[in-house]
Nucleic acid binder design. Structure first.
Length: 518
DNA sequence: ATAGGGTTAG
């Protein structure tokens, strides 16, 4: 007689794909273990949290479970709350209220509120806050802390503070959440107030302050704080490096990275992406190559974000060959970021057709382009003068992909027509835009008018520009250039004089075409 | 389970 073979859930540890999960699920069904709430719960946890793109399967698994327990409800709520559509977690909540014997507990509310925070949905958040209040769960430490964060994510730090003040004995996590809440809303004074009030601080508190200082542009304070920190972890290091990189202090970002290395510390993937971004923005190709060598040796070549940062750095530094190499050799899945960076790289170096070709390959590979990809591809078209193509892509953006164009997308189309000299078409396009054109849009168009010397249209655009941005002054240069290109020297002189009256000296780096040259 | 760092455009 053979011993009944035990089924071990430890197989889930090595389960990295939906396919292998399905195989495990099949075995579970075969052994009739699907009615075991523990086994069913573990399976659901794995496909709703650990695996990506498996939420639909999780949902089905849940649906086919006759009487899901509280853990299963909470797990699916958690998975949906972390997804692109966090509001869907509410339907599971409703189901839980109506069809289960389990009332929602502190876990349910923590996950639901996190979903509301992710969705930045104040309506959802405040409704859940009320529900938690009615059930007496708002006083639960985890729930309360999540409510504090949720209000800040929704942009109302005053409500966060109100919630926080109602907590009888906030722990360090709650204090840190309140600190984060103020910075989330760029309230430096509020954050400092909390920081000095805190009865205890841990490394996270310090790191929150570091990140907050860089976020609100207080780089000196950030550096001072960092210097004074006796204990630093990798989050501290990556926070300061990224903070500097994002504030335009590229050299300093590189210096901190060197210091990290000098101390014999091992950079992690986050500080590496940060320092690579600093290289990309400052064109520090030599440093990037050194970093590439380190990445190869350290075994971090397998990390997607590192590869993305590396490929973007190469393409921004003009090494399109190396960018291509990284892109082609990229292990496993490429993300939307990888494709978009590569498209941008090609577009920037003038390979408009190549960019479009890659854009099509991307769609074939099953990656859905987002708004950023469309900015990249529209730029590619405008630089390559592919007007028809560009406009077709712009139209498809809404029709096929359901992406609402932002002002930047409209700007790309204006640039597309403008660069091609189709000035009237560009003007008509701006007039019929469903969102009000900004000064940037008008300035783009004015730039095109000046390039082609269209005086009549330039004057019209100029009027619109003044209306959109009353205290602008840089457009005088563009306007006078228009007259210069059109060969109307007298007008140029006139505009120059009026510019002098407008204290043109205040405009940094302004230049204009010399009248004498015409 | 609640708090801290991330790459793509403009």
């Amino acid at each position: 007689m053979s011993k009944p073979r035990q089924f071990s859930l430890s197989v889930l540890t090595n389960c990295k794909t939906l396919k292998s999960l399905k195989q495990i699920h099949a075995q579970v069904l075969k052994k009739g273990l699907d009615s075991d709430p523990f086994v069913a719960g573990k399976l659901l946890l794995h496909c709703s949290i650990n695996l990506s793109d498996s939420l639909d399967y999780a949902h089905r698994l849940f649906t086919y479970t006759p009487n899901p327990d509280a853990f299963m409800y909470n797990t699916l709520i958690r998975g949906l709350g972390e997804s692109e559509t966090p509001q869907k977690s509410l339907s599971i909540f409703t189901h839980m209220l109506g069809y289960s014997n389990f009332p929602p507990d502190s876990f349910s509310f923590a996950f639901l509120l996190k979903g509301a925070a992710n969705a930045r949905c104040l309506r959802m958040g405040s409704q859940l806050h009320c529900q938690a209040l009615v059930r007496g769960l708002d006083s639960h430490a985890f729930v309360g802390t999540t409510i504090v964060s949720m209000y800040a994510e929704c942009g109302i730090v005053g409500f966060s503070r109100k919630m926080f003040d109602e907590m009888p004995e906030p722990n360090v996590v709650a204090w840190n959440a309140m600190l984060t809440a103020y910075f989330r809303c760029y309230d430096l004074k509020g954050a400092e107030g909390i920081f000095y009030l805190m009865p205890f601080r841990d490394l996270t508190s310090m790191n929150v302050m570091l990140a907050g200082y860089t976020k609100v542009g207080e780089l000196e304070l950030a550096k001072k704080l960092f210097l004074g920190m006796l204990i630093k972890d990798d989050v501290s290091w990556s926070t300061i490096i990224i903070g500097l990189a994002q504030s335009g202090s590229y050299d300093e970002a590189l210096s901190y990275f060197r210091e990290l290395r000098r101390l014999g510390l091992t950079p992690n993937e986050v500080s590496l992406t940060g320092v690579l971004s600093a290289c990309a923005q400052s064109g520090a190709l030599a440093f990037a190559i050194t970093l590439h060598g380190f990445i190869e040796k350290s075994g971090m070549v397998w990390i997607l974000s590192v590869n993305n940062a590396l490929l973007d750095t190469y393409s921004k530094c003009g090494s399109l060959d190396m960018a291509c190499l990284v892109f082609k050799r990229m292990p496993g899945k490429k993300s939307i970021v990888s494709w978009t960076s590569m498209v941008t790289g090609l577009a920037m170096q003038g390979y408009g057709e190549g960019a479009i070709k890659l854009f099509n390959e991307m769609k074939e590979s099953g990656i859905k382009p987002d708004g950023i990809t469309f900015i990249a591809i529209l730029k590619a078209c405008s630089h390559a003068g592919l007007i028809e193509q560009g406009y077709k892509i712009f139209s498809k953006m809404t029709e096929e992909y359901g992406i609402d164009p932002t002002i930047e997308h409209y700007g790309c189309v204006v640039d597309l027509y403008g660069r091609a000299g189709l000035l009237q078409k560009a003007y008509d396009f701006v007039i019929q835009m469903p969102i009000p054109p900004t000064a940037i849009i008008w300035r783009t168009l004015l730039g095109a008018c000046s390039f082609f010397g269209d005086v009549v249209l330039a004057e019209r655009v100029k009027e619109r520009l003044v209306k959109a941005d009353p205290d602008n002054s840089g457009d005088h240069v563009l306007l006078s250039n228009t007259y210069a290109v059109a060969g109307k020297q007298n007008d140029v002189v006139m505009i120059r004089e009026s510019m002098a009256e407008l204290k043109m000296k205040k405009i940094p780096g302004w230049s204009m075409i010399e009248v004498d040259k015409f």
